[in-house]
């Protein structure tokens, strides 16, 4: 019962913080419209690029057009979901440099929750909804997908989001130790962008690195492969173990970093 009350408290808190950040985002309506437009243009152009490549070559490493699109859309959905919920991480550096982080530490809110979910980016909602719509279309176009495969696909999507969450916790932890956030974050974004295509295109050892060490493949490629029935039961279990392991390690690293915070800027 108490857990339920706590959860609703956090949801309410997230809603309040998101509402306030959203008002900021719409201070310049012109800017907000342009940002959303830019994201949509990027989305449409990349789909067009995939369409052109597949129409010229028939398939990419054996995958058909809608399968290639499913890989891209899956990446896009997890990426926009992470950007929507975890946008506050992008502002973390300024909190450390200005000393505002000390202020968060004194508040009766778990500081990690505040830093991760302290202001969702509403400008990511259109692209998130578009991706969700395209997932439905791609899954129906691929055809012959069983309900079990669809269930595993969505379970692995959640697992992918948890891996993205773990990465963001790592970024925050590194930020505390070095006050370096932006570059680490963008490096993570570029690494995840490797998952716009099935990871089968990369040669070893790069493929192994993005499967086992920085599990972009598990995060993005595995869900799409599961939907196509190309992922073994062992790989599905492995994906969940990786997700839980990364989240656990990131939380441990966060605690390790927080203990070493010196409050030098305050």
């Amino acid at each position: 019962m108490e857990d339920k009350i706590n959860l609703s408290k956090y949801v309410k808190l997230w809603w309040m913080m998101t509402s306030m950040v959203s008002q900021n985002a719409f201070v310049s309506r012109f800017g907000a419209v342009l940002f959303v437009l830019g994201k949509l243009i990027r989305f449409v152009f990349f789909l067009f690029f995939l369409l052109i490549i597949v129409s010229r070559t028939q398939a990419i490493v054996g995958y058909t057009l809608w399968q290639v699109i499913l890989f891209y859309i899956t990446f896009n959905f997890i990426d926009s979901l992470a950007q929507f919920f975890l946008r506050e991480v992008y502002r973390f550096r300024s909190y450390v440099v200005t000393g505002d982080f000390d202020y968060f530490l004194t508040k009766p809110i778990p500081v990690l929750f505040r830093l991760l979910f302290g202001g969702s980016d509403v400008l990511d909602i259109p692209i998130m909804l578009l991706s969700a719509g395209f997932i439905t279309v791609a899954l129906s176009k691929i055809g012959s997908i069983s309900p079990a495969e669809i269930f595993i696909y969505f379970a692995l999507l959640i697992n992918g989001f948890l891996i993205a969450l773990a990465f963001h916790v790592f970024v925050l932890s590194i930020g505390i130790l070095t006050s370096e956030v932006d570059n680490t974050l963008w490096l993570f974004r570029d690494l995840t962008q490797m998952g716009r295509f099935p990871i089968d295109i990369y040669q070893n050892p790069l493929r192994s690195v993005i499967t086992f060490i920085i599990p972009v493949g598990v995060m993005v490629t595995f869900p799409a492969k599961a939907a196509m029935g190309l992922l073994s039961a062992q790989s599905v279990i492995f994906a969940f173990i990786i997700g839980i392991f990364f989240l656990f390690i990131s939380y441990k690293f966060w605690n390790f970093s927080l203990k070493r915070y010196t409050s030098a800027s305050s």
Partner: peptide
Amino acid sequence: VSFVMWRIRNIIQLLTIYFLWQVI
């Protein structure tokens, strides 16, 4: 550090496109 990270990002972007065209 900022500059080296920026260049690493460039390499990652380049390798993604490089491997894509290599298999195509």
